Amino acid sequence: MEKESFDFQIERIVSVVRDSDARIVGLQFPEGFKRRSPGIAERIEEETDVRVIISGNPCFGACDLDVALLDKVDLLFHFGHAQLDDSSLESKVYFIETRSNADIAEVVKKALPELKGHKIGLITTVQHVHKLEDACSILDSGGKECVIGIGDSKIAYPGQVLGCNFSAARSEECDEYLYIGSGEFHPLGVSLSTGKRVLVADPFVNGVREVDPSRILRQRSAVIAKSLDASVFGIVISSKPGQERIELAEKLKSLAQKHEKQAHILSMDLVTPDQLLQFKVDAFVNTACPRLAVDEVGRFNAPMLTPQEFEIVLGEKEWENLVFDEITGE
Rank of each mutant, 00 (worst) to 15 (best):
Leu314Ser: 04
Met304Asp: 12
Ser20Gln: 09
Val285Cys: 04
Leu248Asp: 06
Ile10Thr: 08
Trp319Ile: 11
Gln243Pro: 11
Ser191Asp: 13
Phe279Gln: 05
Ile246Arg: 11
Ser227Lys: 02
Val205Phe: 13
Cys59Ile: 11
Glu184Thr: 00
Asn101Gln: 02
Ser239Val: 05
Lys144Gln: 05
Cys146Arg: 02
Ile54Cys: 08
Pro158Ala: 12
Arg43Ser: 04
Ser254Pro: 07
Ile246Met: 13
Gly39Thr: 06
Phe29Ile: 12
Val16Gly: 06
Leu305Cys: 12
Val16Thr: 13
Glu114Ala: 09
Val73Ser: 07
Ile246Val: 11
Asp152Cys: 08
Gly181Val: 03
Glu2Ser: 05
Leu305Pro: 14
Val107Arg: 04
Gly117Gln: 08
Asp66Arg: 13
Gly142Met: 03
Lys119Trp: 04
Glu145Leu: 11
Ser141Gly: 07
Asp85Ser: 10
Cys136Trp: 03
Ser227Tyr: 13
Val25Thr: 09
Glu42Ile: 03
Gly143Glu: 09
Ala102Gly: 07
Lys92Pro: 03
Val129His: 06
Gly117Asp: 06
Val205Ser: 15
Arg215His: 14
Gln243Leu: 14
Val16Cys: 09
Leu84Asn: 04
Met268Ser: 10
Glu326Asn: 00
Ser182Pro: 08
Lys116Trp: 11
Val205Ala: 11
Ser141Met: 04
Lys34Leu: 15
Leu277Tyr: 09
Phe33Arg: 03
Leu277Ala: 11
His78Thr: 05
Val126His: 03
Asp134Ile: 09
Leu277Glu: 13
Val200Cys: 00
Pro307Met: 02
Gly56Val: 10
Asp325Thr: 14
Ser5His: 03
Gln28Thr: 01
Glu316Ser: 05
Asp134Ala: 10
Ala225Arg: 09
Asp274Gln: 15
Asp175Cys: 01
Leu75Val: 01
Thr306Pro: 07
Asp85Glu: 15
Val190Cys: 01
Glu296Arg: 10
Thr287Phe: 13
Lys34Ser: 06
Ser153Met: 03
Ile155Tyr: 00
Asn321Phe: 00
Leu276Ser: 12
Glu316Cys: 08
Val297Trp: 07
Glu47Gln: 14
Asp66Lys: 14
Leu228Ile: 10
